[in-house]
Design a binder for these strands. Sequence first.
DNA 1: CTTACTGCAAACAGTTTGCAGACGT
DNA 2: ACGTCTGCAAACTGTTTGCAGTAAG
Lengths: 154, 154
Amino acid sequence: MQHLTRDEIRQSLIECGLKATHQRIVVLEAVTELHGSHPTAEDIFQRLRPANPTISLGTVYKTLDTFTETGMLRRVVSEQGSKRYDSNTMTHSHIYCSKTKEIVDFEDEELEQLLLKFFSERKLENFEIKGFSVQLTGCKVEPDKKISITRVPK
Amino acid sequence: MQHLTRDEIRQSLIECGLKATHQRIVVLEAVTELHGSHPTAEDIFQRLRPANPTISLGTVYKTLDTFTETGMLRRVVSEQGSKRYDSNTMTHSHIYCSKTKEIVDFEDEELEQLLLKFFSERKLENFEIKGFSVQLTGCKVEPDKKISITRVPK
DNA sequence: CTTACTGCAAACAGTTTGCAGACGT
DNA sequence: ACGTCTGCAAACTGTTTGCAGTAAG
């Protein structure tokens, strides 16, 4: 999903039935480049402004909405309720740090399998599951350092 | 947590070091009565207004904030980013219906154990887990009927 | 050439803030 | 009586909308 050329981006826009406008190309490029940081519309807008001085915040909002509708991006709401965007549209979980307000992706095949198995053994009547995700809340010990996940052998 | 008398509510407010004002009593009463519906500040305000015509929306917001800080309530953000309140402060998961915007509680001892075990086998470096919760997204088949969870025998 | 998309500015929803007065302890 | 809490209104943040002009296919 990363390091797409502009032509590849143009291509995927067309595949989704969207016109490949300059604004859409640079917005999508920015979100994939910022992969892992879950930017807000404002973040994207600020990042694009220097190189695209005429782009408007409203367009960034509309564009991100459109991308979410077509499934190119996933919307994640922060603990504070602001909307953030994730170029990782695969099933994955999120770690929320209440100290730094960061949202860190947490992909784990085993966890996914565990939950898939669990939910296949329940019957949710009158509800069609589209997706699931685990939300881990807590806070960083050292706010400046990264969070890393290692496996402990049983 | 349900059907607390006003005196019991008064009591738990005092235990949290808060003054037992009329506004706090009725707000806490309303949230516990609306248990399961995850009301917004506005919902609470509208519910209280008839019987408490002088209560203000600002007070409801402040009161709910205070309750969240003391741990009497839990804040949940909806898929749209609005803040909702949950009188169930135990570990539990949420089912989000994108059709009706409902948030349904999903308590399951087995799921909790499964996740506890899973996370005890991982080491999250530089992160202190405060809690976790599974988010199920999807939509109701029959919007007017309830969602029910049954267990399928293996 | 046509229709979808953009920029702009205004509107909007939800939430927070500051302060004078009211109330619980 | 003291300090905390409330009501009110204004301010603020993040997001959405309507419309005239622009650009993509």
